[in-house]
Design a protein around this nucleic acid. Structure first.
Lengths: 210, 210
DNA sequence: TTTATAAGGTAACTATTGTTACAAAGTAAA
DNA sequence: TTTACTTTGTAACAATAGTTACCTTATAAA
């Protein structure tokens, strides 16, 4: 809790940090846990204290797409708008590593917006960040070839999780990139031949040369 | 001005409409005019009264990508965050048809957020809409083949502009889709053979069968 | 330990998209 | 009208990505 206070006080005003302590609920998740799922009512917004959350979305045909990762001090803009407009969740949030969050109840979100300037900045800044990440993804998908997209994916993943090991099967990576397994195996093998990664079963290590 | 009042009063509270009239600046643009350009200071946020605005963004390599169209009563979430954080424009806004806007000065944006609940809802709703459109674009680029993307593009364009004629060369369409001219000509020819469009020089007509 | 299942490697082939090149037709300027 | 330029059509080919099939190897279950 002291650690929480310290982290938040870097960006938010003291009285607000106090309020967050009072009305927020601390929650912990282990890797793979589902923090938010599709069609559930969202009654609080998660603020990430430690670890990484992976945020996904499903389209009309049921295909899932990776929106972004959330790390320390970040919050989910999509969850925020869902809360504000009392809509059901259009997203799924999964713990990509062990995760600690503090859940802010939806009544407070709105109240603090008018009460604390630093909360307003924080929320808008959060929107801008998500926006920019989505735009980068869009550019990546629109202009980059699959090998470059795979490299970008691996870099993002290792950066978000803070470790060089990616514990996913080729199939899982293929799903996140919207392609198929054989293609991913092929490209990963090429990266291994270029000494940019080392492949194991259900796991790969990203080397600094990537 | 009476028309403006009527349009806005559908979604915003009376006192706010009065304030918008007082502090907003009405501006008109003709087709092709640049309303906002990259790297300019944004000192006001446009609220669209009539017509359609096309919002673009440039990536690191200078490639432009279409973000979304703005029509009646809509506003630009990207311009809003730029204003709020006093950043330079990362976007370009072009009049896709003749356009009337009312420009809201940046001091007011923030002030109204705490003063008028309907403004807060409006702004957050606007963010959500832009978010969803970006997500649809992302899904489209990630999963759809080029022929489907072209159809989606033509449908969006005609819907936004409210007319069935698209006045663009094949080259311009290719640029917006991030592909090349020959490919677009090829696909458009196929659509013409299927009686879904009629092609002219610098122009095409979308048929209801599309 | 044997068996079943999941993951990964690879070849051969298909489909889609991108590229180059050039011709034909429309449009604007001289 | 002649000339220059832009736009569109099309063929032929190259590059990239997706698919099917089958094999090997690792892991978990019986």
């Amino acid at each position: 809790m002291e650690q929480l206070k310290h982290k938040l006080s870097m960006i938010l005003e003291p009285n607000l940090v106090k309020e967050i302590e009072q009305s927020g609920t601390m929650m912990s998740f282990k890797e793979g846990d589902i923090i938010l799922d599709y069609d559930k009512n969202i009654r609080s917004m998660p603020l990430v204290l430690s670890g990484t959350i992976r945020v996904m979305r499903k389209d009309e045909e049921g295909r899932e797409i990776l929106l972004y990762y959330l790390s320390s001090n970040e919050s989910c803009a999509m969850a925020y708008t869902c809360c504000m407009e009392a809509r059901k969740s259009e997203i799924k949030a999964i713990a990509d590593t062990p995760v600690d969050i503090i859940a802010i109840p939806h009544e407070k979100l709105d109240e603090w917006l008018t009460k604390y300037p630093s909360w307003k900045s924080y929320i808008f800044h959060s929107f801008t960040s998500r926006f920019n990440e989505l735009l980068k993804s869009l550019e990546s998908v629109a202009f980059q070839k699959l090998d470059e997209r795979l490299i970008r994916y691996l870099k993002n993943k290792t950066k978000a999780n803070g470790k060089m090991v990616v514990s996913l099967s080729h199939q899982q990576i293929a799903d996140e990139l919207g392609t198929n397994r054989v293609v991913v195996s092929r490209l990963l093998k090429m990266l291994e031949n270029e000494n940019k990664v080392i492949l194991y079963r259900n796991e790969l290590k990203v080397l600094s040369s990537l």
